[in-house]
Amino acid sequence: MEMKKTDQIELTIPANHKYLNIVSACLEALFERDEILKKNKDDFYAIQLGVHEACTNVVDHAYKDIKDANIYIKIELWSEPARLIVDIRDTGESFDPEQIPSPDFGGLQIRGFGIHLVHQLMDGVIYFSAKDGNHWCLTKHF
């Protein structure tokens, strides 16, 4: 089956919590206009929160001690099979996702749910480091 990329949108935002709502707004606008996404409106929140939590992780950890950094976000829409891929790239510190402990459910743990949520909300989650930086590659199938 031939994989076909229909559209691609790229965003560069300062790595600051203040600007993460721009990513949500962009995804919301896509869900309003794209025919495939319009039919899968129920997935909007999952994608919005999954992408937001990954970006928050970049601000809080990859760029923890780095100022004036950017997050580079590439949103790709594919057909046959229909899916949305979001690549979130940073040039900060990398980390080993395997070393992140699972949250303590049922207690009153305050932090440490972000990565768990990303995995729960998206169909595919890959983290890797490359020459151009660290990538979160998040996929949602429709």
């Binding site: 949500s24 939590e53 928050t56 009153l108 743990q109 305050i110 749910f113 972000g114 949520l117």
Partner: peptide
């Protein structure tokens, strides 16, 4: 309209 893990953490801290 939107709640993330940081917002939820503030609520959990309040509960504690």
């Amino acid at each position: 309209t939107f709640l993330d893990s940081a917002g939820l953490a503030a609520l959990v801290k309040l509960l504690k």
